[in-house]
Design a protein around this nucleic acid. Structure first.
Lengths: 111, 111
DNA sequence: GATTCATGAATAGACAGTCTTGATATAGAC
DNA sequence: GTCTATATCAAGACTGTCTATTCATGAATC
């Protein structure tokens, strides 16, 4: 019980499949793609990016953003791609295990 | 972003819909129902039970287990039932938001 | 033109909450 | 006696929140 940690990491990696992005844009992308459901606080996003970089799943480079501001642009590394696949399948397994418990069961119906 | 915390709580509440159980049995039930996918450490389960009791979602009573050992038996309170419904719908919303991000998107296909 | 304000972008630290690990306790079953 | 059932607690790791700070730019206002 703890595939829970790491969902944010997975979302970040997934978002970078679209192409390199800076942190601010990653947060916006996750927010928008989830239709406003997922809010990523910068206080959790930036540490997450640091984590991922440290592990080698993503790589960073300072560049200029669309708005002519300095921005650290992150891109997925090959190792990151592999990692993403792994996290994705663990997540799917976890979700379906939770679903098995949550769905109404026979036991409950005849009680 | 943090409906993550609380999944264990939800699973416990859900498990108690089957009827009152003691902690040890709750862990076993979750483990079994999830087909061995979800392992609940006692070090996280018991604090979780204490939390839930403190909030009034569950109530405890010392009784004898099937094996004639003293066991703290927990049952769902009415407030707990309400809470369960709420957590269930939040969880569903969260899972589908994550799914929206994870599924292959048009953007990615033509890149 | 100068000043003010909102926005884009990143960082850092204090704190809270959860989970893991590992140790300890007790009592009945074999 | 040892194994299983049942519960508790404390230390530590990790994530996430909240809040503040910094710096640059574009837009609005005077």
């Amino acid at each position: 019980m703890e595939p829970l940690y790491g969902v944010l990491d997975m979302l970040v990696l997934r978002t970078l499949l679209f192409g390199p992005l800076h942190g601010y844009a990653i947060a916006r992308a996750i927010h928008d793609t989830s239709r406003e459901t997922l809010h990523i606080e910068f206080g959790s996003l930036y540490p997450a990016l640091k984590r991922l970089e440290l592990k080698g799943w993503i790589a960073a480079k300072w560049e200029m953003s669309e708005h002519k501001r300095r921005a650290k642009v992150y891109r997925l590394t090959p190792a990151g791609r592999t990692r993403l696949r792994q996290e994705k399948s663990e997540w799917a397994e976890f979700v379906s295990a939770v679903a098995r418990i949550m769905k109404p069961a026979a036991r409950e119906i005849d009680s």
